[in-house]
Design a protein around this nucleic acid. Structure first.
Lengths: 215, 215
DNA sequence: CGGTGTCGTCACGCGTTCGCCACGCTCGTT
DNA sequence: AACGAGCGTGGCGAACGCGTGACGACACCG
């Protein structure tokens, strides 16, 4: 499957497409265009696909593109590593053009669906979170949070009432690059203390993780 | 594809078009007309297209035109260099007239969308910013700012109270063509000093970036 | 060709943050 | 009731992130 064919097929399906022939060029293009979706092969002329994942995830965390990987590799380890690197979808060769187009469309829909309900201001009882200003207030009085504390609280608040495993929290807040020891616990501790009366709203789910309840 | 054809097609699509037959003439024309978009070939009779990019970007940074490049070059390095030089869109020959017209329309839309909420005079507490005159005043007395300082302050002021990541600021003020080292920090430092009492309104958000607060 | 101003980079130093550890308590299971 | 795994907590040191001053490259102007 040639790149040109893919471009043609996706353009034909109504997508706006740009393409590059190497990893470096792709990164530069992604930086310039801020695309919704980046589609690429695991084997690139100049770099590993997973490196590309990390590079794309790193840049401009606010509007991170969805990552879509094509690969000839049948080995599952690669597949696993890809998802751990933040890949959103994954197709193993030989793949039909039709399948790729359909999946891209699905990803695209998912993105616009996920974008809509993104609110600037999150309110949960006495807790108010302004994600743009990165400010948090409990019962009106503002609370100073550090980066990790804020990100963690945001994760919990976004999925309030649902349990978040430690691993999930680590990968979302820390970005997979910690030894996943007991960092989460410590951060939760500090968070609880700073949140004062609201601190007890962060519930421990023994053996699993944490959740934020909205009394 | 001849220049005359392009002019005809773009005019037909409702755009106001002027054209020149060399790089130097183009620069002069752009200076005189302050166009929204400049479209040109990478190979010009008298100069390199990238030089033209730089020349166009340099002149009148307040209303910088969007740059749209046509090129016969298939080598990706050129494409990369083009984006680094601040090109907004890029089409490789052979290009269909239709595609060029569509892209110009997209660029045009993007521009007017970005322009719509533009106010001439921004006032935030004791801070007054005149974007057209590129002049800033604190408590009535005017402050001399350099290009970078002004652009940075403008970015912060436009999204006052919202945290701007360093990456976002770099890409908007510097246009991605810096090593994104600690330029932002240094510029903020100089800005704070010049802003005097208002300097402390630029808050550091540790691990993220900066925001301008409006007391 | 020297003078001036802007801007990017670097190195240094300080304060904050954060990850880790160890100890002791709590909860769930048998 | 007893035991062990899981978790809260306090404290500590290292690393990080940022402010700052200085320097040099570069463009512009006289």
């Amino acid at each position: 499957m040639l790149r040109a064919d893919l471009v043609a097929a996706l353009t034909g399906a109504g997508h706006e497409v740009e393409s590059a022939s190497s990893g470096q060029a792709g990164i530069a293009l992604a930086r310039a265009s801020a695309p919704d979706i980046v589609l690429f092969d695991l084997q690139l002329p100049d770099m590993n696909g997973l490196e590309l994942c990390r590079a794309l995830r790193a840049s401009g965390s606010s509007r991170r593109p969805s990552l879509f990987v094509l690969s000839a590799a049948r080995e599952e380890p690669d597949r696993l590593a890809a998802f751990e690197a933040g890949v959103d979808d994954y197709v193993v060769k030989p793949h039909s053009m039709r399948e790729v187009v359909l999946r891209v469309r699905a990803l695209s829909r998912r993105r616009s669906a996920a974008k809509a309900p993104t609110v600037e201001l999150l309110t949960l009882g006495a807790l108010r979170i302004d994600r743009a200003a990165r400010r948090v207030a409990v019962e009106g009085s503002s609370v100073e949070l550090t980066r990790r504390e804020f990100d963690l609280l945001l994760r919990l608040a976004e999925r309030a009432d649902r349990v978040q495993t430690r691993d999930a929290l680590v990968s979302e807040v820390w970005g997979e690059l910690t030894d996943s020891g007991r960092v989460v616990d410590t951060t939760v501790k500090r968070l609880r203390k700073k949140l004062g009366r609201m601190g007890s709203s962060i519930k421990t789910v023994r053996g699993i993780g944490y959740k934020l309840i909205v009394d």
